[in-house]
Design a protein around this nucleic acid. Structure first.
Lengths: 356, 356
DNA sequence: CATTCTTTCCAAAACGTTTTGGAAGCGGCC
DNA sequence: GGCCGCTTCCAAAACGTTTTGGAAAGAATG
């Protein structure tokens, strides 16, 4: 056992030292009018001097609210996605603190599914609401929280949920649609898409944007030009990139679901002496810090993770305080960041088959 | 007011449904032997079916422990340091969850000093222990927590605190000492140091390492070759880097307290057509993801932030459970990551003064 | 049969807070 | 003097849990 630290003063102690009842001290600190100005001052002075802060537990018990907001982070991902999470957490924490709440972070370990951890957090009443990141197309966390009527905000969207819920998302469909149109204007005709096998909703929408724009121009994305990799397997990304670059005809433009993938693809292209952007245009999403320093810099979309976090936090606070009718889901546009990884399509060259 | 969600079942409810007392249900779930095996099973089955999780508040109240561990994050810093924080948080959370605790994150907003926030967290009994990052040479947080006898682990060290406390640090002194010796062997004689004005202890030790190695070789670091910048002011970094590169004689090797600074310095050098590493060797610290992608890649030291976080978490858990005698402070060595930003000293060239 | 020991259960207290429903004292009013 | 209203205070209850100190019933022991 650790040596018990000097115990913090509690209401009982303050009240006996002041010769007042617990009730009066509590009400004085809360600023109620049924305690005289003189007493109020006396109480406040004493509380300040003793550094009194009400016990969270006592408060929770009577109010039913914990004053905490929960975030369940999934088992550890690749390095790049962790970067997202870190920034997101810092942004959330800042915004929640502004509203007098604190953020608690629980990890879904290897052996506990996220929804189980969530159930634990919710049923243990250790959070008045939760934030969900990394939405899946069909997400059991969303179903569960809706069933339980627990306030939550989803960063991202799910597909096919009829009940209303609060989400915040970046419009990847529009972004990749516009990127694709731009590339078509630059002469590109053979496209590829590098994405994740996990049914991440954002990857879905980005693909929809790409395919929609292609269709509008009478083009299409052949199945073999879509490479999907698990986000837990670094090596697989290289193999997938390699496969895309071996296609015949080889795509002249590859859109990547995230910057993390784009950077890997850039590496693989370099190894095969495929010049970017002369031979190949690459476009990513997220505007990771590294993307600016890759050579060439990755052309990408910025969605200001910290801003997203702040919005998500504000939405959740509003949801908790005022109910679901007070808050609208929100779709924000991503900013296009033009850097060096895209350019005009290379002059048409005969396919390997035509040569052979 | 938000619509109250379906209330979670509590002990009282379970007990009345089972026709048992609250005590028995509680003890059955806790596995005490004074409840029959049959009853225990019956209780457990019911609890599982109803998804019962004990209320954190109730537990806290009686046990005096919150089950939370606190982290107070300082007001928002520059982008690069935030990257550190994010990774650190994810590592912490993972390790704490393994020990059955959760991490709470509170932000020191613009107007609240860190130590005040800390006082709030501690006196409100919302954490059984806290983690401190970014140690300052003289750190009022450490003084406060020692006074209050609150368990804490400091990531970093302070100077001149006599009482024992638990810290975890990376040996920047040895690292920069060795880097300096290596650079001396490569022919460098004129060194510079780019650091922070804030009295961050890690910057202090890194500088000690640099100066110690210089002294061993009869060299020294002139005052004007030390440039210190506030970590909140991006523009100042450029000015400082500029100033270092304008010295006469111009340093041929500049050590930077962090990779963030090193990258800025690299940019400024490029703008002035100073070639790295031909004209200037740069060495950083932290091994940020971007450092690998800068060109040339930054030679740096890796301290595996996630591993640090895990160690810090484990130390704190031990400290809380077993007391301060059970846990030793710990100094770990950083890994040298040789990349392209350092090399042999350029051939001696006459100083500006000698020419004029 | 009376006594002790086990087994199985439970009522009550305690933790710290806020809220509810008064109570006491006082001055002013009829 | 009796009544009212105002100001200022407080006792008690409630929130959910764990622990303490039994109690009741049956089994083993004398």
């Amino acid at each position: 056992m650790a040596t018990k630290g000097r115990r913090q003063p509690r209401l009982k102690e303050l009240s006996s030292e002041l010769g007042l009842s617990i009730t009066t001290v509590s009400r004085a600190l809360a600023g109620y009018s049924d305690v005289s100005a003189a007493t109020r001052e006396r109480v406040r002075e004493m509380a300040a001097r003793r550094g009194y802060v009400p016990s969270r537990a006592g408060r929770m018990l009577v109010s039913g609210n914990s004053g905490f907001v929960g975030l369940v982070v999934p088992l550890r991902d690749s390095h790049f996605i962790d970067a997202f999470l870190g920034e997101f957490i810092v942004g959330l924490s800042e915004a929640f603190t502004d509203s007098g709440r604190d953020l608690t972070i629980t990890t879904a370990a290897r052996d506990r599914r996220e929804v189980d951890v969530l159930r634990h957090v919710v049923n243990g009443q250790q959070a008045d609401g939760v934030v969900l990141t990394r939405a899946l197309s069909e997400d059991d966390r969303v179903t569960y929280l809706l069933d339980q009527q627990v306030p939550f905000v989803l960063h991202g969207r799910v597909l096919g949920e009829d009940r209303p819920y609060v989400w915040f998302d970046t419009d990847g469909e529009t972004a990749f649609g516009e990127a694709t149109r731009m590339l078509i204007d630059l002469g590109h005709r053979d496209f590829g898409y590098l994405t994740f096998t996990e049914p991440l909703t954002f990857a879905h929408f980005r693909r929809i944007g790409l395919e929609g724009a292609l269709r509008d121009h009478g083009l299409n994305l052949p199945d073999q030009a879509i490479a999907a990799v698990s986000r837990f397997d670094e090596a697989e990304v290289e193999r997938a990139a390699d496969r895309l670059l071996s296609l015949d005809p080889r795509p002249t433009a590859i859109l990547c679901a995230t910057d993390g993938l784009a950077i890997k693809l850039l590496d693989v292209a370099a190894k095969r002496s495929i010049h970017v952007p002369a031979d190949l245009s690459i476009i990513g999403f997220d505007n990771l810090p590294v993307s600016a320093y890759a050579s060439p810099g990755i052309t990408t979309f910025d969605q200001s993770i910290q801003d997203s976090a702040v919005h998500v936090a504000e939405m959740l606070v509003k949801l908790i305080d005022q109910g679901i009718d007070a808050v609208e889901p929100r779709l924000v546009q991503a900013d296009f960041i033009a850097r060096g990884s895209h350019g005009p399509a290379p002059p048409a060259r005969p396919s390997v088959r035509a040569v052979g």
